[in-house]
Amino acid sequence: MNRLIQDLWYAFRNFLETFGAMQLFLLRILAYSPKTLLTRFRLIAHEIYAIGAMSLVIILICGLFVGMVLGLQGYDTLAQFGAEEGLGTAVALSLLKELGPVLTALLFAGRAGTALAAEIGLMRATDQLSAMELMAVDPIRRVVVPHFLGGVISLPLLTAIFNMVALFGAYIIGVSLMGVDSGAFWSQMRPYVEVADVMEGVVKSIVFGVAVSVLAVFEGYNAYPTAEGVSRATTRTVVISAIVVLILDFMITAILI
């Protein structure tokens, strides 16, 4: 029993230490970010391509199918109350406020977060980061900040694309397959989907972008410099990102609702 309490205490202390180190890491990144945005935009643009553009396929496919499923489920439920015409509104609200930001962040963590962690972790394992330090180049400014900013900029854009495609998926199912009126599908959104709903999704996608990106670069940067260390860093990135995204989602929803 004593041993169990001791282990739990160590685990808790370890968690606090890592959490604190990550906050300091994020503060350092944020302090360097404005200058990096101004002076190294080419590096950031390269990361937006590598992280964002290269994630488009998974976002497009998943977005389409999520939208189609929402279309089917939404129609099935609304039809019971004779409110099929509200399908567009129901799908739009659930996508903009919840599913869009959350699902995109989870997909992003799996596709881009792991790539970020693995890339930086491998740079650590092959002494590339040490070599930079010895060339008097700060790897945080040169490598970490551009990767981080690439992630933070990409995720809201990917979320917008996900929402758009998913809405299109719901439209295909609802209008083309189930016979919902096309005009009603779109026009019902106008009075019910407000700017605040869109902004809630935007805020969430930015917060998730910061959270997933900092987790990925932190795990990669602090990876143990072995094959196993890099593998552990990528796994931790996905697992912790998923948990953090869902916790943050609840917190933001609770604040904004």
């Binding site: 092959t126 070599a131 060339m135 008097a136």
Partner: peptide, 19 residues
């Protein structure tokens, strides 16, 4: 320290080239 490191050149065991 970074300023001082400009006086150093280091050859790593594996080269440590930026891939």
């Amino acid at each position: 320290l970074y300023e001082l490191r400009k006086r150093f050149g280091m050859l790593f065991q594996n080269g440590a080239l930026l891939t």
